[in-house]
Every structure is written in structure tokens, then in C-alpha cells.
């Protein structure tokens, strides 16, 4: 069953008047609108949703990289009379919440970091939902979102010595991977550049 996002928004506003929560519309046919939550109130909002609106299952946490903020606003459209668009790109974390007892969902929440560089921080929600533990580690690993307050923020899929964040849109693949000379793509050219002595 789909979720009544307006009621959820009203509930949050009533219980947490200080929380910055705004609705974003999804232009596609899936009808899954989302709530954009300010970073400072994210943990409180999630705790409220869990304890008072029975959204007890945090099913999915996705990271998204938006180097171009206009694209992000095209997918999650502003309501009327809201803040203006951002100038810089940012990283986004999308949460999908379900209720196992009321059997509704997904309630989509989004949190955005200030930028894609040093301030790519989003508060960790592990203290509210354990299921975010590995998923946040994965997003840290692949996108470089720093989850403040995460108990054990290490790389999870890539090895510890790896430096970049491979899922970012501007990531450049290294050219020194084990090469397989297939004649039909640029692997060979790249490999030749990397191993000049061999070829």
C-alpha cells in the first residue's frame, strides 16, 4: 500500500516544529514523492517516524551523486514558494522506510550534503536503524559521504588502501588494471600507455 506522505509530513511538523522538512514531488509515473529533511533534524525525524508512525523497517539507503544540482531538482521537484536551487553539486542519501505492522511504504526521505568536497557530511542514522550500518559504510566507500556519528566508518567493498570513490560521476578509472588484450576497445591502447616497455 502506498503511503500518505502528506499525513506523515503534518505529523512531523506537529511533533518537531523545528525540523526542516519539505516535500518534493516525483515527476515520473511511480508516484513516489519524497521528503527532503535538513541534516540537523534527520535523526530526530527518523526516530519520530519509527516510534510514533510505526515506520520500523529502514529498507534501503542509496547514495546519489549530483554534480549538477539542476538534475537533482528535475527528479525531486520543488513545491511552490520554496528555497531556490543550489549552486554547487552535492551528494544525496535517499532512505526508503516501510512499516511492517501497518504494511505501508515506501516513505522516501532524502538528505543532502553541503557539497561534494570536504563538507560531504550527512548524520548517521545507525543509532535509530541498525540496518543502515553496512549501507552507510557502502555509501561512504563508493560515494565518499561522511556519516557523522557512524560507529565504524570504514571502507566495505573496496580495499582499505583504495583512495577514490568509484561511484562518483567524475571518477576516472585507473588504467593499470590487469589488462586483457581485446582488440576492439581502448583497453589495449591504455595498457600500452601504462606499460611502455612491454609493447
Amino acid at each position: 500500500m502506498s503511503v500518505d506522505i502528506g499525513a506523515a509530513l503534518q505529523g512531523i511538523h506537529a511533533a518537531l516544529p523545528a525540523a526542516k522538512v519539505a516535500m518534493r514531488t516525483n515527476p515520473g509515473p511511480s508516484n513516489q514523492h519524497s521528503l527532503l529533511v535538513g541534516n540537523e533534524s534527520l535523526v530526530d525525524v527518523l526516530r519520530f517516524l519509527r516510534d510514533h508512525l510505526d515506520f520500523d523497517l529502514l529498507s534501503n539507503v542509496s547514495g546519489v551523486d549530483w554534480p549538477d544540482p539542476a538534475k537533482a531538482d528535475a527528479v525531486a521537484v520543488f513545491g511552490e514558494g520554496e528555497e531556490t536551487a543550489r549552486e554547487h553539486g552535492f551528494l544525496e542519501v535517499v532512505y526508503h522506510l516501510y512499516s511492517t505492522s501497518r504494511r505501508v511504504g515506501p516513505l522516501v526521505l532524502r538528505a543532502r550534503s553541503a557539497d561534494r568536497g570536504e563538507n560531504a557530511c550527512v548524520p548517521s542514522v545507525v543509532s535509530v536503524f541498525r540496518s543502515a550500518e553496512f549501507q552507510e559504510r557502502e555509501i561512504f566507500d563508493l560515494y565518499g559521504v561522511i556519516f557523522t556519528g557512524h560507529p565504524d566508518l570504514r571502507r566495505i567493498l573496496m580495499w582499505d588502501e583504495f583512495v577514490d570513490h568509484p561511484m562518483r560521476k567524475d571518477y576516472v578509472a585507473p588504467d593499470d588494471y590487469e589488462y586483457e588484450p581485446t582488440p576492439h576497445d581502448d583497453v589495449l591502447v591504455k595498457a600500452k600507455r601504462h606499460y611502455p616497455a612491454e609493447s
Binding site: 516525483n26 509515473p29 513516489q32 529498507s59 528535475a74 527528479v75
Partner: peptide
């Protein structure tokens, strides 16, 4: 080409 938007399905 799907239209602009997002979807979560399980």
C-alpha cells in the same frame, strides 16, 4: 527511455 523520475520497487 523512461521519463524523468525515480522509483523503488521490491
Amino acid at each position: 527511455k523512461p521519463p524523468v523520475g525515480e522509483a523503488y520497487a521490491r
